[in-house]
Amino acid sequence: MKSNISTELLVDSHVKFIQSLGEDRDLTYHLTTHLRMNAVYWAVTALCIMGRKEALDREQMIDFVLSCWDDEAGGFGSHPGHDAHLLSTLSAIQILTIQDAVDRMDVPRVVKFISSLQTSSGTFAGDHYGETDTRFSYCAINALSLLDMKYLTPGTAVIDVDKVIDHISRCRNFDGGFGSGVGAESHAGQVWVCLAALSILGRLDIVDEKTLGWWLAERQLPNGGLNGRPEKLEDVCYSFWVLSSLSILRKLHWINRDALISFILSAQDPDDGGIADRPGDMCDVFHTLFGIAGLSLLGYPNLQDIDPVYCMPAKLIEKKGLKKTWLALPRHLS
């Protein structure tokens, strides 16, 4: 356990932590290649929220993304030589959008790859091996909308949008939440992907907002942290998944802001930077992003706005004309 608990966001330490991630090509680096593309997206997004986008080299980042192209499948893998997957393809598109370099990739082939993954039930597979999950429906909707809303618009749509909505509505549970598939238990991460997809598609009307809002508000535990399901432990990553869901439903005031801020800040590593799942644990870039993104939604001072639907810089999403009706808490001055 770290003894000194921080009471403010250690921006400089987190920037250094993120910069150090790619430096050591040690065993951990090789054991996490299956997540590398996602990790780059988490890193650059965290930097954007802290207003430090330039801390990672733009050209190097774009080169890395392009080096993960899987020409056989027509999508991006998580690392050079890895198979294309929807998870890494969405991250690639998000990174290139943030770096204003979407023109460097083969958009028509990527669109074809994504649309080829829709199954007859309306949901999406992550790759041609067929595992389906509402996460992948969100990846497809998010990615296609970032590339061009025409891919989701009647007349020019490349997927069956009504079927996606129908499938998501069949994943809805008695608690108002959503699971990974039809019949699956509600989970805050799955709730977020379903709400965000419905928000992009303008179909939040199928959500039972009161029941789901209650379920989400009850995720806050006495220590201020949020859990992802009833009777589970708190974890910093739910600071984004629960909060972004509440933000999409415009109910962020249904949890206690100050208690959650203290919880997230207490999970920082004051020596080496980064944020962990909970105080005293090992930090990683995943929890670093979702902790900082949560703080941004809560109106923590001196941060950039994050769009809870895309988990990308809000200004960028607004500029692309994709901003939805979500509501974050007002930003406090420092």
Binding site: A217, Q220, H253, W254, N256
Partner: peptide
């Protein structure tokens, strides 16, 4: 339950 005060107010 002051944590969820905003909800009860609504």
């Amino acid at each position: 339950d002051p944590f969820r005060d905003g909800r009860y107010q609504d």
